[in-house]
Amino acid sequence: MIQAHAVRLFTERGYDATTVTDVAEAAGVSPMTLYRHFPTKEDLVLIDQDQRLAAERIAASSAAQPLVRRIGNALIDSATTLTGDRHGGDLTANEQFLLARLQLMTSTPALRAKHLDNHYVLQQTIVDALGGDATDPDTAFRVQAAASACLAALHTALVRWAEDDGRTELPDLIAKALAAAFGDDIVSIS
């Protein structure tokens, strides 16, 4: 609820023009309560628990599949879970919230670096889910490279989604970006 108020205020007033106190007042909490949940102003936009979805999907996938397929399908499945399944209709409430957050992240210089930090966290989450902390350095490198490459395709899809105001369904954009990077047969929509 705090984060929803923050994103709304940042979108309406601008990120730099909105204070943490403004957000706390809008959410009906004290600034101290807000800081307990969101240690920095940037965290009001960027903190999410979406990484666990990708990790769960990867852990449930077959280890016999290529790494890129496991990661790519997990990213697509996670996006489907997060955005809902609208099939060309109006944006769902979750999509509207995610889109507003993403547009803030890409348009606000103060948030871009922190957004990149979130990608590193997601990459490590993916690596951990794939057992990339293995003692074999070559295996660990392959897992890190596959995760990084898939996240680059994800980033491209997210930027396009933000630029077109969410008109294209996010899972479809992610699948297209992955197919462009790795070939049409690498992603199998399940």
Rank of each mutant, 00 (worst) to 15 (best):
Q3D: 09
A4W: 00
H5R: 15
A6W: 00
A6C: 09
V7Q: 04
V7W: 00
V7R: 03
R13F: 01
R13A: 07
R13K: 15
G14Q: 13
Y15P: 13
Y15T: 13
D22Y: 05
D22W: 05
D22F: 04
V23M: 13
E25I: 05
A26E: 11
A27R: 11
G28L: 05
M32K: 13
T33M: 15
L34E: 07
R36E: 12
H37S: 13
P39G: 08
T40N: 07
T40M: 05
K41L: 08
L44D: 05
V45S: 10
L46G: 12
Q49E: 15
Q49L: 08
D50E: 11
A54M: 09
A55K: 10
E56V: 14
A59F: 03
A60Q: 12
S61Y: 02
S62R: 14
R70G: 03
G72V: 06
G72P: 05
A74D: 07
A74F: 02
L75A: 03
I76D: 03
D77V: 08
D77S: 12
L82Y: 01
T83K: 01
H87M: 12
D90L: 05
D90A: 12
T92W: 00
A93P: 02
A93M: 06
E95M: 06
L102T: 15
Q103F: 00
A110M: 06
A110C: 08
A113L: 13
A113Q: 12
A113I: 14
D117K: 10
H119C: 04
H119K: 15
Y120M: 14
T125A: 11
D128S: 14
A129K: 14
A129Q: 14
A129G: 11
G132L: 12
T135S: 14
D138F: 00
D138Y: 02
A140T: 13
R142F: 04
Q144M: 10
A146K: 07
S148L: 10
L151A: 06
H155A: 11
A157S: 10
L158G: 03
L158Y: 01
E163K: 07
D164F: 07
D164S: 11
D164G: 08
D165R: 13
G166I: 12
R167E: 11
E169V: 07
K176C: 01
L178K: 11
A180I: 01
A181K: 10
G183Q: 12
G183E: 09
D184H: 06
